[in-house]
Simulated assay, not measured.
Amino acid sequence: MRLSAFKSHRGMAFPLAPVTLFTGASGSGKSSALQAYEALALLGAGARLTRAFPDPLGCVPDGTAPDAQGRRGFRIGCTADGPYGPVRLDVAVQAEPQLRIVGERLTDGEGRTLLTTALRDPGRRTVHAEWHTAGAARVTRAPLPDDRLGTALLPLRVAGKTEGQRHVLAAAEQLVVALRSVFPCDPQPQHMRAPVAPGDGRLRRGCANLAEVLHRTRTGCPRRHARLALAARAGCAGPVVELDAERLPDGTVRAVLGAATRRTPLERLGEGELRYLALALVLLTGPGVLAVDQAAEVPGVMQTLTVLADGFDRGLDGRQARALTALAAGICAEGHLRLVGTVGETGAGAARGHEGVSVVHLRP
């Protein structure tokens, strides 16, 4: 991930390990790094700029002065490696006077430009696009909308008749698939305590429907649920024997921890215990249980899901942070899940010694 000019970041590039944890003082840009990743994921899925950047002026680097036309903006990008080698994407976004993509470049591992866009006429809501053809005409030129990522639109615009076109399609699809499968997770304990009505059984971003999802995994994913119950023993107080979910007379579902002599409803747990359970559930269940848009054109065994966890160690004590980091390292080592999160001193210390875990120290 590259943050060429985004909020407090200038000229920064961050290689992503199976588990990447950003740490640093307040104001060092930990959360903004995750925000940039989520924005790229949304653009890769075809979302409009207004959804990817709800506060575009807040993304402009501090101290950036407008040019003679009153324009200011920011630049981000990424490189996705895969069967077609490293594919690089760079995007320049104008935040004012109008939110729009003013430049985009897609290049392959040999440095060949596969797609480039540029704003030619500020009065039109389009950009001039050129993509590699390698046929009788070396490039194809056409207008593209200025509020969407051109790379995500290429599968709809490129016929794939020439070798060059097929190369462009393969590179674009590799990058889009790498970006699309992202699950931002920010458990909110204050919303996780009350019993919930049954729904589709897919865990939402704030994990308010934790009890409902535990009921689903209890009956439909017994092996994963058993691993979750084992993880609960490492992160919850007392001798946890079982993690269960029960239906109440009014039809709602309540989650409980089972011990040798008592059952404790989850609403009685501390905030750290609830966040620990929610994050452990995310790590152990995967796309089928999480509310995430999967790339349907890619076989499940080949998909990789990225979990974004801002405040991965928030509310956790040292024991919980170590147990959760060890769980993340083990799960992500299998290759189907990647975790990108932010942590404080507790989480940074808990990450020491875990293979596949990279801690990125940011400075204000």
Rank of each mutant, 00 (worst) to 15 (best):
E273G: 01
R275S: 11
G286Q: 01
E271H: 11
A295Q: 08
M302I: 01
L308V: 09
V282W: 04
V298A: 13
V282C: 15
E297R: 13
R275A: 11
V298N: 10
V282T: 07
L283D: 02
D293E: 15
G270V: 03
G286Y: 01
A296H: 08
P299A: 10
E267A: 11
V307C: 14
P287E: 10
L281E: 03
V282R: 02
L283W: 07
V282N: 02
R275W: 12
A280N: 05
G286S: 05
T304K: 11
G286P: 07
A309L: 15
E297F: 09
E273P: 00
P287V: 05
G300F: 06
M302R: 15
V289D: 01
A309I: 15
E273T: 08
L269G: 09
P299Y: 12
G300T: 11
V301G: 13
M302F: 10
V307Y: 05
A278C: 02
Q294P: 04
M302H: 14
L284E: 10
G286N: 05
D310L: 09
L279I: 11
P299W: 13
L269S: 05
T264A: 06
T264Q: 12
T306F: 04
G270K: 07
E267R: 10
T264G: 01
L284F: 02
G286R: 02
L279N: 06
G288P: 13
Q303V: 03
E267P: 01
L283P: 06
G286T: 05
V298F: 13
L274R: 08
L279W: 03
M302T: 09
V307L: 14
L284Y: 07
L279E: 04
V307G: 12
G270R: 06
G270I: 03
L277K: 09
G270E: 02
L274Y: 08
L305Y: 05
G286E: 04
D293C: 12
V298D: 09
V307F: 04
V301H: 15
A296P: 01
L266V: 11
E273F: 00
G288F: 09
R275H: 08
V298Y: 14
A291D: 14
T304F: 00
M302N: 13
E273A: 08
D293Y: 08
Q303A: 14
L290Q: 02
D310G: 10
V289W: 02
A280V: 07
G288V: 10
G300L: 13
P287F: 09
R268F: 14
G288Q: 15
T264C: 06
V298M: 15
L308F: 09
E271L: 05
A280P: 03
D310S: 08
L277I: 06
A296L: 12
D310C: 11
T306E: 10
T304Q: 14
V289G: 00
L290N: 03
G288N: 15
L279D: 00
L283I: 04
D310F: 14
A309C: 15
T285G: 00
G270F: 01
T306Y: 06
V307H: 09
T306I: 05
L305V: 11
Q303T: 13
L305D: 12
M302L: 15
L290A: 04
V301Y: 15
V289L: 02
Q303N: 07
L283N: 08
T285S: 03
A280E: 04
L290V: 06
L284D: 02
G272D: 03
E271S: 12
G286K: 07
